[in-house]
Nucleic acid binder design. Structure first.
Lengths: 116, 116
DNA sequence: CGCAATCGTTACGGCTGCGGATTGTTCCGG
DNA sequence: CCGGAACAATCCGCAGCCGTAACGATTGCG
């Protein structure tokens, strides 16, 4: 067990985070998009459309569309799997890593400012 | 300073939370809706449409629409301010309190399970 | 070698939320 | 008492995401 947190603190944390997200008009990702992004960056590659769909419990078009959107934002990129050209490998990008780095820092800073 | 958390832990926390949210097909609120809900439940009343709009930095129709949606979900309710009948007072509900209670517990449980 | 299976994408109709402008009601100052 | 200000709701056209059902490309089994 690592992070001790009371329910009231948890809700305050979510509150501050949601306010921060809403205010700065960054291209706020949907819950699904964020889940995909975090899966790609935190779990071991390779990542495929089918694998992500199974991981999230959603259909494949959901993944394809989310990748379209996040690809335009340069948060992820796609590449054909040359070993099996039916597959598409989802890859990380510098912009995506930066996005998550700033997001992580925001959470840390917000958590640190919580009343005890 | 209360809650110590490293960036990698923060991202893992978000990852687990987003996966949980995506999987159970609960009526997942948008970021804005969540921000409104948390403002209503964590900040001191009374809450008005105008006040919430200013708090979030969005226009009033955004608040009205979000209240429509969350009102149908019974997460909040609306009442005319009898003192100034131009105002609408946003009120908490049992269902809303329960929703946030479960959400807070989920965050706590997820945080507790994070690797040190 | 052909044919079913797999994989990702696209097409379609529908739903929801958005911003901006407008409306109807209520309040208040002159 | 009345005209403007304040407030929330509604209307409008638009953009994004949804689920289902197709589709084209690729693979590998029989």
């Amino acid at each position: 067990m690592a992070v001790e947190l009371r329910p009231s603190q948890a809700l305050r944390l979510l509150h501050e985070l949601s306010l921060a997200q809403v205010r700065d008009d960054a291209p706020d990702l949907s819950q699904r998009q964020l889940a995909i992004l975090l899966s790609v960056y935190l779990e071991a590659p390779p990542h495929t459309v089918r694998g992500l769909a199974a991981r999230l419990g959603v259909t494949k078009p959901v993944i394809t569309r989310a990748l379209d959107t996040m690809g335009q934002l340069r948060l992820v990129s796609r590449r054909r799997d040359e070993a099996d050209r039916r597959n598409v490998i989802i890859q990380r990008t510098v912009e995506g890593a930066l996005y998550l780095e700033r997001l992580g820092d925001l959470v840390v800073a917000t958590a640190r400012a919580l009343p005890r």
